[in-house]
Amino acid sequence: MPSSPSFSPPAPSLHLRVLATWVAVYPTITIALAVLRTRIGSLPLAAQTLVLTAVVVPIATYGIIPLLLRLVAALSTRSVPGEGPVPGSPHHRPGLRRGRPVGDDRTGRTGSRERHRG
């Protein structure tokens, strides 16, 4: 029995990934600095940066960024009522407009026009 191809939604744009990374990293760095400042303040700057990035990078990479990207994906698959699915969403079918083939004016004709012979 042939297996059906699995659908994977399109990856968010580079701009959305950059924004999600910044939204994750900025508050994480701010919180980490506030918590760690008294503990690492006497260390040399390079050591402070090492400790800070050792804390922030895993939290952002494994926790916050994937959560934000799932949120972006969920929001991008929503559609406006009456407008049909958003292009690129799992429910979008190119060539259809509100469930009808493009060009279908309810007369039975589709986008291709028949040539008159005669």
Results as ranks from 00 to 15, higher is better:
residue 104 D to E: 08
residue 60 A to Y: 05
residue 36 L to I: 02
residue 74 A to G: 12
residue 69 L to V: 09
residue 67 L to K: 07
residue 34 A to M: 09
residue 9 P to M: 09
residue 114 E to D: 15
residue 13 S to E: 00
residue 117 R to E: 09
residue 97 R to T: 12
residue 71 L to F: 14
residue 56 V to C: 08
residue 84 G to C: 06
residue 118 G to D: 07
residue 23 V to K: 00
residue 66 P to S: 11
residue 50 L to E: 13
residue 105 D to Y: 10
residue 91 H to I: 01
residue 88 G to Q: 11
residue 89 S to I: 05
residue 110 T to A: 15
residue 6 S to T: 07
residue 21 T to L: 13
residue 87 P to D: 00
residue 109 R to G: 14
residue 19 L to S: 02
residue 101 P to T: 10
residue 66 P to D: 10
residue 19 L to A: 01
residue 118 G to R: 14
residue 31 I to F: 03
residue 79 S to E: 11
residue 76 S to C: 15
residue 117 R to I: 08
residue 54 A to G: 04
residue 101 P to N: 11
residue 3 S to M: 05
residue 104 D to A: 00
residue 26 Y to A: 00
residue 83 E to M: 13
residue 16 L to R: 12
residue 98 R to V: 04
residue 78 R to Y: 12
residue 62 Y to I: 01
residue 8 S to K: 08
residue 95 G to D: 09
residue 117 R to G: 06
residue 2 P to L: 02
residue 116 H to F: 02
residue 79 S to F: 01
residue 92 H to A: 12
residue 102 V to L: 15
residue 39 R to N: 05
residue 62 Y to P: 07
residue 23 V to R: 09
residue 60 A to W: 02
residue 56 V to N: 00
residue 93 R to I: 15
residue 98 R to A: 12
residue 82 G to P: 03
residue 95 G to Q: 01
residue 32 A to L: 06
residue 86 V to A: 06
residue 46 A to L: 11
residue 118 G to C: 00
residue 38 T to I: 01
residue 34 A to T: 02
residue 15 H to L: 03
residue 94 P to N: 06
residue 94 P to E: 08
residue 51 V to K: 06
residue 58 P to D: 02
residue 48 Q to F: 03
residue 47 A to P: 05
residue 3 S to P: 02
residue 94 P to T: 04
residue 118 G to N: 02
residue 118 G to L: 02
residue 57 V to R: 04
residue 92 H to W: 15
residue 74 A to P: 05
residue 1 M to L: 01
residue 40 I to W: 09
residue 5 P to S: 15
residue 71 L to D: 11
residue 4 S to T: 01
residue 53 T to S: 14
residue 73 A to F: 08
residue 58 P to H: 08
residue 20 A to E: 03
residue 13 S to N: 00
residue 44 P to M: 09
residue 7 F to G: 09
residue 76 S to I: 04
residue 23 V to H: 00
residue 60 A to E: 05
residue 104 D to R: 02
residue 61 T to R: 11
residue 69 L to H: 08
residue 68 L to C: 13
residue 97 R to D: 07
residue 12 P to E: 08
residue 99 G to W: 13
residue 118 G to P: 08
residue 113 R to M: 12
residue 16 L to Q: 12
residue 54 A to D: 06
residue 79 S to T: 07
residue 55 V to N: 00
residue 50 L to P: 10
residue 80 V to M: 12
residue 58 P to S: 03
residue 48 Q to K: 14
residue 13 S to R: 06
residue 79 S to D: 04
residue 85 P to Y: 08
residue 92 H to L: 02
residue 19 L to W: 00
residue 23 V to M: 10
residue 2 P to A: 04
residue 85 P to A: 07
residue 60 A to S: 01
residue 114 E to S: 14
residue 20 A to K: 03
residue 112 S to W: 09
residue 97 R to W: 04
residue 99 G to K: 13
residue 24 A to F: 11
residue 83 E to H: 11
residue 82 G to N: 07
residue 70 R to F: 11
residue 113 R to N: 13
residue 71 L to W: 12
residue 25 V to R: 03
residue 40 I to R: 10
residue 97 R to Q: 15
residue 17 R to A: 13
residue 82 G to A: 10
residue 94 P to D: 01
residue 57 V to Q: 09
residue 90 P to L: 07
residue 106 R to G: 14
residue 27 P to M: 04
residue 82 G to M: 08
residue 16 L to P: 03
residue 7 F to A: 04
residue 31 I to D: 08
residue 84 G to R: 09
residue 90 P to W: 07
residue 81 P to F: 07
residue 110 T to K: 13
residue 86 V to P: 11
